[in-house]
């Protein structure tokens, strides 16, 4: 087992973001259009009374529901939890309660935040609350900033530009931040890149080399703690052409993604091909890594900027068929 393998795993920030836009359907469209217009709308069910937010179907009988009912906007707290240390993104950044609120005219609890000025003693089961509306509402659950004691509540201010169209979709961006840990084998590989080396994991027995290494040999489920340097030259075994723009693409469109079988390795390695006129990319072509300048080498695949064509004869398909 190599010394490098036993070093502490690399870690780094990792962010996942999705700008989710969801269509509402006719029932939630009524609810969100109502929020935009400053009112709360529920729906009557046979078995559970008036539900807010409105459900499409009865929770017990699955019967389709269609009788909309205006509710609230005030109601009473039926249960709550006191959040003394709010987390980022939560509706309030001072101590508040998440509560189930039974709106006047409704039967099921409605989940939202309640602001009582940061004072836990000011909320109890039975406390009367009403919405604190945003001035500019778009048809989203956060059009209600939170609920407040009923005596402090104000009616929803009219929109500066009223909208007639019903709300058709809601947008809820998701951003999750991670402190990602690369694990043992990938840490060895990434540290190698910072030294301008491509390190592959040797399968037990040494017959195959995996680049990038994932940690184990899938043929026998054994760990792969031994590493060997492979060449930064290889053969394109398949490719695809990217024509769709995306925020995180730094290459000019269209460009070619390649799976390259590095000389000395036995699984293809994914990267980008540049300095090759579109149309000349092909299976079997020889390529070489274009490394970042020495002072920009890091523990990242970005240490290889791209692959570029190598002036060598193509490898016949029969020799790489297994990897294509």
């Amino acid at each position: 087992m190599s010394e490098a393998y036993d070093q502490e795993a690399l870690r780094g920030p990792h962010v996942i973001e999705y700008p989710f836009r969801r269509s509402c359907g006719p029932v939630l469209s009524r609810f969100f259009s109502g929020l935009r217009d400053g009112k709360l709308v529920g729906i009557r069910s046979q078995t559970a009374g008036v539900l807010v937010p409105p459900a499409e179907y009865d929770p017990q009988t699955a019967e389709a529901l269609e009788e909309f009912v205006d509710v609230g906007p005030a109601g009473e707290v039926v249960s709550y939890a006191w959040v003394s240390s709010p987390r980022p993104k939560q509706p309030l950044q001072r101590p508040f309660a998440y509560a189930l609120i039974k709106l006047d005219g409704a039967d099921a609890g409605f989940l939202h935040a309640v602001d009582v000025g940061g004072d836990e003693a000011s909320i109890a089961i039975g406390t009367r609350v009403a919405p604190r509306w945003k001035a500019e509402r778009v048809g989203h659950i956060t059009d209600i900033e939170c609920f407040v004691p009923e005596s402090e509540a104000q009616p929803a201010p009219p929109l500066t530009e009223p909208v007639e169209e019903p709300v058709k979709s809601v947008t809820t961006p998701i951003r999750l931040e991670y402190d990602f840990r690369a694990g043992k084998a990938q840490s060895v590989f990434l540290r190698g890149l910072a030294e301008k080396k491509i390190l592959g994991a040797k399968a037990i027995g040494g017959d195959l080399v995996y680049v990038p290494p994932r940690g184990a040999d899938p043929r026998n489920a054994e760990l792969t703690p031994e590493f060997v340097e492979v060449a930064d030259t290889g053969t394109v075994v398949t490719y695809s052409i990217v024509r769709v723009p995306s925020d995180n693409i730094s290459f000019d469109l269209p460009y070619v993604c390649i799976n390259v079988l590095l000389d000395g390795s036995h699984i293809p390695f994914f990267h980008v091909l540049q300095d090759c006129p579109l149309g000349e990319e092909r299976i079997g072509m020889r390529v070489k890594a274009k490394w970042a300048p020495d002072d920009q080498l890091t523990t990242s695949v970005a240490s290889i900027e791209y692959f570029e064509p190598l002036d060598e004869p193509d490898v016949p398909f029969d020799q790489i068929r297994e990897y294509c």
């Binding site: 509402c24 509706p91 998440y98 989940l111 659950i141 809601v170």
Partner: peptide, 17 residues
């Protein structure tokens, strides 16, 4: 994802309720 998640309640809070 329409009415619950955008308020970012954590499971501690929901379990507290």
């Amino acid at each position: 994802p329409y009415c619950g998640q955008p308020l970012w309640p954590d499971l501690d809070s929901l379990s507290g309720i």
